[in-house]
Design a protein around this nucleic acid. Sequence first.
RNA 1: UGGCCUAUAGUAUAAUGGUAGUACAACAGAUUUUGGUUCUGUCUGUCUUGGUUCGAAUCCAGGUAGGCCAACCA
Length: 554
Amino acid sequence: MTEEKGINFIEEIIEEHLKEGKYQQIITRFPPEPNGYLHIGHASSICLNFGLTLKYGGYTNLRFDDTNPVTEETEYVESIKEDVKWLGFEWKNELYASDYFDTLFQFAMRLISKGLAYVDDSTSEEIAHLKGTPTAAGKNSPYRDRTVAENQDLFERMKNGEFKDGTKTLRAKIDMAHPNMLMRDPVLYRIKHAHHHRTGDKWCIYPMYDFAHGQSDSIEEVTHSICTLEFVPHRELYDWLIEKLEIYPSRQYEFARRNLTYTITSKRKLLQLVNENHVTGWDDPRMTTISGMRRRGFTPESIRDFCTRIGVAKRENMVDMSLLEFCVREHLNKIAVRRMVVLDPLKLIITNYPEGQSEEVFSENNPEAENSGGTRSIRFSRELWIEKEDFMEVPAKKWFRLAPGAMVRLKSAYIIRCDECVKDSTGNIVALHCSYIPESKSGHDVSGISTKGTIHWVSAAHAEKAEVRLYDRLFSVENPVADEGDFLSHVNPRSLQVIPEAYIEASLKDAAKGEKFQFIRKGYFVVDDDATAEHLVFNRTVTLKDTWDKERKK
RNA sequence: UGGCCUAUAGUAUAAUGGUAGUACAACAGAUUUUGGUUCUGUCUGUCUUGGUUCGAAUCCAGGUAGGCCAACCA
């Protein structure tokens, strides 16, 4: 057996760097902008950045890229910290680009004194116009040749708040004919008389991404600054600024962002879903935000496993949602205890079982766990609830659940035979009359009968009730943003089905928020945050694989 | 009439000049007191054309296809 190395291209680069002694330790950072909640795409980046320093030695900083005060809020900072922690990672330092505003201002002054930056009085429209297009060179701004002294004075006065928003910018002086648009005298600083979530009203000029991100990396001596592919063109500017500033040479590496079928990973669009009430909030269980997935019942282990499995590369991709679901099921199968819950009830009366009598049966908590996770006691009696869908008056091919004359095992209890289905005046089936085989009790079965089907049930007299929320994918098409049309038109109208009163077995009564279960034959469920002592609420995390469903559709 | 990035089964990802492999999905079967789990098997792939080489998914060139770049967003 040869152990597959299977390292990705970034690990390859790092191993090379380590081998040649370029770095003693690896320093990465996870740099979210606090203007929204983290989603599955960020999870990928978090696992990559933190995973790398865990694997190769070193550390990872959590750095908020908070250079745009108008969109950023403390609420987002808090949620981001919670989500990273929940995913299972620890950052070395909690940092903010805004911590560096003084240094960044000095950096800008350094560039000005080197004649490599200038204050421009052009409007944004004029700047855009003079920028040219990807296929046509730009033209120099009329303010491009101001003297160093003049630029220093003007920039100082920008900082002092002497000018209105949008009236002046600081620009790098590079090359207006550069084939890379980002090198055509990029804006470094803009005026915004806005309140910042951390620096308050201290500043009225704020650095742009390109003059903050790489510099922050450098200040922190980040060795490998990992970002997504759309920043590839920025790398030239990233390197130019570091070189001209003569500061620590952090290096940027880009990988392709992960796309997942049936979801969107655009903060703007996620915000729209929230603001327009298509979902109940950022943590709506249908959202593929980290907080949404947490509330849905996904585990950090399963998300990390997913991120490992999808890997890291540089090509456009669309990862199958079924892989995420597989990872979730695989973990939950191991840890979730089994319980019986009837979602769509049909009364089943065992006519040969004495009225008013009940007895105790035992059921394993988790067949996957050691010693089956122990057993629990369940009350069995004459009247039960079963799922409507477990009975067919006219059985389909290969049907081995209940049908007139058919026998099934009641999970952990007795084998029963269906004798009669009772209908109301309009022909709806309202109950099933069955008889049980007394010597077939689970664990003491001497009946000699074997059944193909086993169904779950809850004793009517002993059942508790709970609200159950069945979630399905939020979008009904694989790629909701594929066409130019409104992605909202692809929202799945049946992404949430609420069952106000499902019958749950009594042992579920004390389930705590966040506790995870497998409802036998129905799927994995978690107690929702909305639950109270009086009113239990379960979210369906994911269904079980259903090979009968496939058979049925044939 | 620009620059940059990318191209391996349906999807994602390995193979780093030497037997194209893994996972998910799909399909078939075995086991099963969950039509779950587990196990076994099957199916499908190097974008294209040249070149270098004993040998190319890998290196080179052309083509094709997809993506990114013209916010005082990140």
